[in-house]
């Protein structure tokens, strides 16, 4: 067993373990953390496949941004998972039938008969100086530069539209205004009330 295969098996075992824990642990925060581990290990597998750009993107986007957001949501909302688990046994037969049908269909379409080593040529190995990121960038900024830029504009429109449709000025929100804080005078904060002295009641 060469080293590459060894690394593959280590990553694959960790990935399967992490993915299994995501759906079996009871604590949602733990599940999210296991998902982070699954993504990270998956990125490692992609590195082995010479898809380093995808691996980096997976770590940066999913682990760095999406999962952090996810953890925030999970921690902020008090999710009670016990109602979700009710009826697990009751729905199990239907679920199993659906799952096995899907598995069968997937096997028929993308099984070894169509995508096995016999029908698809093994991709050639590139040398150490080959950069997957550079190749992608090369295509993205020449062949596809026009569609690529339009896609960026569409994302910009999505941001503008989402903000335009949902952001409201709330009168009850309190903002800090440093210039007002600095220029505040003592009489703005304390009101000295003069009262005539009262005699203590007996």
């Amino acid at each position: 067993m060469d080293f590459e295969r060894f690394v593959f098996y280590v990553f694959a075992i960790i990935l399967i373990y992490a993915a299994g824990r995501v759906i079996t642990v009871r604590n949602p925060v733990h599940a999210a953390l296991h998902l982070v581990l699954a993504f990270f290990t998956c990125a490692g597998l992609w590195l082995l496949l010479e898809a380093e750009f995808l691996a980096i993107t997976l770590v940066l986007v999913y682990v760095g941004a999406v999962m952090v957001l996810f953890l925030f949501v999970v921690m902020m909302l008090d999710i009670n998972t016990s109602p979700l688990r009710e009826g697990f046994i009751r729905y199990l037969p239907v679920g199993l039938v659906v799952a096995s049908l899907m598995l069968l269909e997937m096997f028929l379409v993308v099984g070894a008969r169509n995508f096995g080593a016999q029908s698809v040529a093994i991709p050639e190995r590139h040398g150490a100086d080959y950069s997957n990121t550079r190749e992608l960038g090369n295509v993205l900024y020449t062949d596809y530069v026009y569609p690529f830029e339009i896609a960026a504009v569409i994302l910009l429109v999505a941001i503008v539209a989402a903000i335009a449709l949902t952001m409201r000025k709330r009168p009850e929100t309190r903002y800090q205004d440093p210039s007002r804080q600095v220029s505040v005078q003592p009489e703005d904060r304390i009101r000295i009330v003069k009262m005539p002295a009262e005699r203590e009641q007996s």
Binding site: I150, V153, I154, V157, A158, V160, A161, A164, L165
Partner: peptide, 11 residues
Amino acid sequence: GLELLSLSLYA
């Protein structure tokens, strides 16, 4: 182009 047009119009 169609999506850019449509998304802006939906909003």
